[in-house]
Amino acid sequence: MSYSNILEEIDDNILTITINRPQKLNALNRETIQELHEAFKEAKADDEVKVVIITGSGEKAFVAGADISEFSDFSPKEGKKLAAEGQEKLFNYVANFPKPVIAAVNGFALGGGLELAMAAHFRIASDNAKMGLPEVSLGVIPGYGGTQRLPQLVGKGRAMEMIMTAGMIDANQALQYNLVNHVVALDELQEFAEGIAGKIMKNSSVAIGAAIKAINANYEDGVNGFETEINEFGRSFGTEDFKEGTSAFLNKRKADFPGK
Rank of each mutant, 00 (worst) to 15 (best):
N172D: 15
N172W: 11
N172T: 08
N172P: 00
N172Q: 15
N172R: 15
Q173G: 05
Q173C: 09
Q173R: 09
A174Y: 04
A174H: 02
L175G: 06
L175Y: 13
L175R: 15
L175P: 07
L175Q: 14
L175E: 10
L175C: 06
Q176H: 15
Q176E: 14
Q176K: 15
Q176G: 12
Q176P: 02
Y177G: 04
Y177N: 14
N178L: 03
N178D: 15
N178Q: 14
N178M: 05
L179G: 03
V180R: 08
V180W: 09
V180E: 11
V180H: 11
V180D: 12
V180K: 06
N181G: 02
N181C: 03
N181K: 12
N181Q: 06
H182D: 04
H182N: 07
H182S: 06
H182Y: 09
H182I: 06
H182E: 12
H182F: 10
V183M: 10
V183D: 06
V183R: 05
V183L: 07
V183W: 06
V184D: 02
V184N: 05
V184W: 03
V184G: 10
V184F: 05
A185F: 13
A185R: 14
A185I: 05
A185W: 09
L186M: 08
L186Q: 15
L186K: 11
L186F: 01
L186I: 02
E188G: 08
E188M: 12
E188C: 12
E188V: 04
E188D: 14
E188T: 08
L189H: 04
L189E: 05
L189V: 02
L189I: 01
L189R: 03
Q190C: 02
E191C: 01
E191Y: 01
E191T: 15
F192E: 01
F192S: 06
F192L: 09
F192N: 01
F192Y: 13
A193H: 06
A193P: 02
A193V: 00
E194C: 11
E194W: 06
G195A: 07
G195C: 09
G195V: 09
G195E: 02
G195Y: 00
I196N: 01
I196Y: 09
I196V: 14
I196P: 00
A197C: 11
A197N: 07
G198Y: 11
G198H: 12
K199C: 10
K199H: 10
K199I: 05
K199E: 14
K199Q: 14
K199D: 13
K199A: 14
I200T: 07
I200Q: 11
M201R: 01
M201F: 01
M201I: 03
K202H: 00
K202S: 00
K202C: 02
N203W: 03
N203M: 12
S204L: 02
S204C: 13
S204N: 07
S205A: 10
S205I: 04
S205R: 08
V206Y: 12
V206K: 14
V206A: 11
V206L: 12
A207Q: 09
A207F: 11
A207T: 03
I208P: 00
I208A: 11
I208D: 01
G209W: 10
